[in-house]
Simulated scan of single mutants.
Amino acid sequence: MSGLCQDRVVVVTGAGRGIGRAHALAFAAEGAPVVVNDVDADTTAQVVAEIEDRGGKAAAHTGDIADWAGAEALIGTALEHFGRLDVLVNNAGFVRDRMLVNLGEDEWDAVIRVHLKGHFAPLRHAAQHWRSEAKAGRAPDARVINTSSGAGLLGSVGQGNYSAAKAGIAGLTVVAAAELARYGVTVNAIAPAARTRMTEGVFAETMARPDDGFDAMAPENVSPLVVWLGSAESAHVTGRVFEVEGGKVALAQGWRHGPAVDKKNRWEPAELGPVVAGLLERAPEPEPVYGAS
């Protein structure tokens, strides 16, 4: 390996399995000490042991990162074990898929909590640390990589709660990028597609493992971009969302100002039918929602 992240201390949430585990191993392979977070203590310990068996450095954190004190303890684990924090990878999440007419309040709350608050709380405590470092004259060269989703960018039928949470993460990313730039922190997001326990029911038809050759849905395909975004090389990139699938890396285009008509006065409701029709004619068709017929 190149040592791209040599001695850069990295925190990865939801790192016991799937994409998070792949991130933790990939960062460690590039020389980074890694805090491995997952609520499953057994899988967390396994990933820590795997990193250490390969000659790397790792520490475990098994707290709930959507809990305020748990998120604070997560950042504290990096500082306690390795003396610094350079990269936060927010990855933890799960799904509770339902059509909207069947979606329960508890299923909505749980998904919003683990994804959206589970991104905000670690980010908030990491940002507080980096701001303190900057004010003390120790300018950070820090990175945050959040995990959105194609569902958050385009929507996904049967995943209203998940889509809303992931869209919120994309919005949080651009705000954090703008606010934290003054402290030497970049904030980007990825929207990955890979085979995990969380996606098996969504991408069942496309997730068969190949008999040989390149496995386009392997979680390990997502991690190289995340590692690069966590490196010193990526200091000029912030406020961006990248889609990653197999060997494909794409820059997502978010909401942008489109066609406009300005009357320079208040519209009457009856006037707006032709106005809206004209705007729609001048605008590109929206991308289809995943799963829409």
Rank of each mutant, 00 (worst) to 15 (best):
M1T: 15
Q6Y: 08
V9D: 00
V10N: 02
V11D: 00
I19Y: 07
R21P: 01
L25I: 05
E30S: 00
P33D: 04
V35Q: 02
V36K: 04
V39Q: 01
D40C: 11
T43W: 00
V48L: 00
A59L: 01
A73S: 13
L85D: 02
D86R: 02
N90C: 09
N91I: 00
F94L: 10
R96M: 10
D97M: 09
V101G: 11
W108H: 13
A110L: 09
L123H: 12
R124F: 10
A126D: 04
A127C: 09
Q128L: 12
H129A: 02
A136L: 04
G137H: 11
G137Q: 03
I145C: 06
N146L: 04
T147W: 03
G152R: 07
V157P: 01
G158N: 08
G160W: 00
S163Y: 06
L180R: 07
G184N: 08
G184V: 00
A189E: 03
I190V: 08
G201R: 10
A216P: 04
M217A: 11
L225Y: 03
E233T: 14
H236Y: 14
V237W: 01
G239P: 03
E243A: 15
V244D: 02
G246T: 09
A250F: 09
A250N: 14
A252G: 12
Q253A: 15
W255Y: 14
K263D: 12
W267H: 15
A270L: 08
P274C: 07
A277E: 11
Y290H: 14
